[in-house]
Amino acid sequence: MSSKVLLARFALDGHDRGIITIINACREKGMEVIYIHFSDPKEIVKSAMEEDVDVIGITSSMGQHLYIAAKLAKALAEDKVDIPVIIGGVIPTIDVPKLEDWGIKKVFGPGTSPEEAVNFISQLTGARID
């Protein structure tokens, strides 16, 4: 069975070159991708439940990653949703421990190859990829 991935971008962070390559790489590996924009991380949780996804991926390139991750962790806990979350973009390594504390499974900093992210997603979901 193919994995279903929710990729989400903060509505006012216009940097989408990274997420475009990730969407493309996931689809090339046969994954189903739902791509949404959100203003409030609660919207991510809602979509994730409705679409019944295996993984949530967030992109952040303007320094709002801590803000999003904190709110998302709270929203997931409130709705008792247990879906792994990964995050990628312009994220300083110094913030990684904090993000991991909030339950982010993996942080992909600038320059990460899309393949690395896709491989990690398939590990998380246990799906076989070609």
């Binding site: 903060f10 509505a11 006012l12 962070d13 203003s39």
Partner: peptide, 18 residues
Amino acid sequence: DPPTTCGYDPDDPRASGT
């Protein structure tokens, strides 16, 4: 900032976080 560039004042819910 992103809200200013899109015409959302700071008290607009869409501006929160940026």
